[in-house]
């Protein structure tokens, strides 16, 4: 057989996708922005990483990224989780782009399951990796049905489900992927971010793009758009809080990961947003276990 060169940066197009695919995705992005919260079906391609591992986010990034961009990729809020590392490497290689862990410095931030703690600003694009774009899927398995519900704004089923949750648990027992209403028209899954992050979606300065590769849907929230987390008057929406502070930086208001220290129940809580935590520590903030080995590992240059 003929030798096929195995050098992605030369053998594949800039940012991996061919230009026709980029155009198709770009057109979908524009429609998604024009109809906030509506899921635009798109001709999602097979990517060199598996479906479910960020192919939607990767395709969005590939369609918008240019050599002047500064790219940050996080998974669970952290820059150094393996899949974030893998995707960041991919774009550094195929898009010849500067990468960063600094939230403020990035022009494109690709994320799975979190919105950074540091408020975003105009000129930034936050790209979400979405496993299941359909907020109603858990209630109705059929796409033909859920698409009709969106078309005719029939969201009663969603409210019934929340009400049943209140009846059973005394509260809306939804913790991640908490359903939102965009511009008072489309019910939207915020992707599996914790509801802690839901309030960051509304009136954001940045463009929020959502990509579901396997499910072949793109949706968007333009800056300064109303995003309301569903609730009831007597059971208002509430976010997660912790009794603990971040063990490393002492933060009281960030989303915390629980780290198991031994098998006798010892725990520490640390910021899930690794850059936010490192930044605070660099600024002199100190938590109760600031000298824990995790702090050293997190600031290790990569």
């Amino acid at each position: 057989m003929n030798a096929r060169p195995n050098e992605p940066e030369r053998y594949y197009n800039y940012a991996y996708l061919d230009e026709q695919t980029k155009r198709m995705i770009r057109r979908s992005i524009l429609k998604a922005l024009a109809i906030p919260g509506y899921q635009v079906p798109f001709g999602s391609r097979e990517m060199p990483v598996p479906y479910g591992w960020g192919t939607g986010g990767i395709q969005l990034t590939a369609a918008i990224i240019g050599p002047d961009d500064v790219y940050k990729c996080i998974d669970q809020g952290a820059d150094d989780t393996t899949n974030a590392v893998s995707i960041r490497r991919f774009f550094a290689q195929v898009a010849d782009v500067a990468v960063t862990e600094d939230t403020g410095e990035a022009t494109i931030i690709q994320t799975r399951h979190r919105i950074p703690e540091q408020p975003l600003k105009a000129g930034q694009v936050l790209v979400f990796q979405v496993p299941q774009p359909e907020p109603l899927r858990g209630l109705e398995a059929r796409e033909t049905e859920t698409r009709a519900m969106h078309a005719y704004e029939e969201y009663g089923l969603q409210y019934v489900s929340l009400y049943e949750s209140v009846a059973t648990y005394g509260r809306i027992a939804s913790t991640v992927g908490y359903p939102t209403m965009v511009d008072e028209r489309y019910l939207m899954s915020p992707s599996p971010i914790p509801k802690f992050d839901n309030p960051k979606m509304g009136d954001n300065e940045a463009i929020l793009l959502f990509g579901a590769g396997r499910e072949k849907r793109i949706y968007a929230v333009p800056p300064h758009t109303t995003v309301r987390s569903l609730d009831f008057e007597d059971y208002p929406f509430e976010t997660q809080t912790w009794d603990e502070n971040c063990a490393l930086c002492g933060a009281q208001d960030s989303y915390l990961d629980e780290v198991v220290l031994d098998d006798t129940g010892a725990r520490m809580f640390v910021c899930s947003d690794s850059h936010f935590c490192a930044d605070r520590r660099a600024a002199g903030h100190v938590g109760p276990m600031a000298d824990h080995q995790l702090a050293a590992l997190e600031t290790e240059p990569t």
Binding site: Y14, K22, L30, L33, A63, I65, G66, P222, P223
Partner: peptide
């Protein structure tokens, strides 16, 4: 350079539609 130029144009169009 269709790749680079169309990307730059698209970002302007995307910003326009988003804002």
């Amino acid at each position: 350079d269709p790749t680079r130029e169309s990307q730059a144009v698209f970002r302007k169009v995307m910003d326009a539609v988003a804002r």
